[in-house]
Amino acid sequence: MNKLELNSLYQLTMMRFLLFLREPEAIFWIFIFPILLAAGLGIAFRNRPPEVLQVGATTLQLTQALNADKGLTSTTIDEATGTQALATGRILLLAVQRPDTTVYQYDSTNPDARTAKLLADRAIQTAAGRHDTLPTKEELVHETGSRYIDFVVPGLLGMNLMGSAMWGMGFAIVDARQKKLLKRLVASPMPRWQYLASFLLSRLVMLVIEVAAFLGFARLVFGVPFRGSIAQLALLCILTSLAFSALGLLTASRAKTIEAVSGLMNFVMFPMWIFSGVFFSSTRFPAVVQPLIRALPLTAAIDAMRGNMLQGMTLQQLLAPVAILLAWLVIPFAISLRIFRWR
């Protein structure tokens, strides 16, 4: 037997790995699921070429005027059919020629319909002889970094780091406690700190694979930008993962059954799924709760990662979220060391 084989920290860490690799569901949720989710969101919110809006008009003359605009395509229909088409969403706007005026029928709460109204009005006014009084020119941009996918990738990354760290810690510990394996281990000369350290070590190695796979996918398929330092991003990921591991440890430090710890985990993570801005900016919540939201570890993690990836901010500029994450690492860890139930 060589030295390494006799090293208990190495053996404990290896055991964690083997147990993880032999759990196919865990591999799916940690490695595959986030990629599928990113792919799904990327496709759903991809930037489509500007759409041609369907409209209708009651006279041939109006239809010709409308079709003159590249953004509109119009058909000539009578008012009754048109109203029905409007109601079923086949057209966004119906232009009705009245003796004294032109009437636009559309749903003003639908953004596409509002756009159609602006375009239709411009087209009809132009056809009637209106001239632009100021010369203008269009320059089209499709900048990476301002798309939804760019926004959501750091959010998904943070959420994934939270889930894998919390579940990885919580389930394994409570399972071992429930099966009295924990008791058996502490009855042996195993140093207790090594048991906990083996979780963190295996987490760090898994983190490399998990983050690399997810971000690699986001980069290759969606061209998500990395404007900040990659090394600092890696540090942020490690810090995030450790903070959530500490929180997972705390959550699992007393629970005796898997059911109990599952409930606790969901209770702890639920507010963050909602408030931490994974899918939309957390600034949409009322100002009074903002300080609370800022203090959540997932908010801090996602803010820091968005800052790094999208805005190219350095760690010095991200001191506030980093400090919040550090606090979430140190405090739960210290508490759980005190209250941990070893048997």
């Binding site: 037997m1 084989e5 090293n7 055991m15 147990l19 759990e23 071992a176 099966k179």
Partner: peptide
């Protein structure tokens, strides 16, 4: 005590031996 079901006999003993 239920030892980890997904480890093999040899792996389990190697772990305990390392302590």
């Amino acid at each position: 005590t239920q030892l980890s079901e997904k480890l093999t006999v040899e792996e389990t003993l190697r772990l305990f031996r390392s302590f």
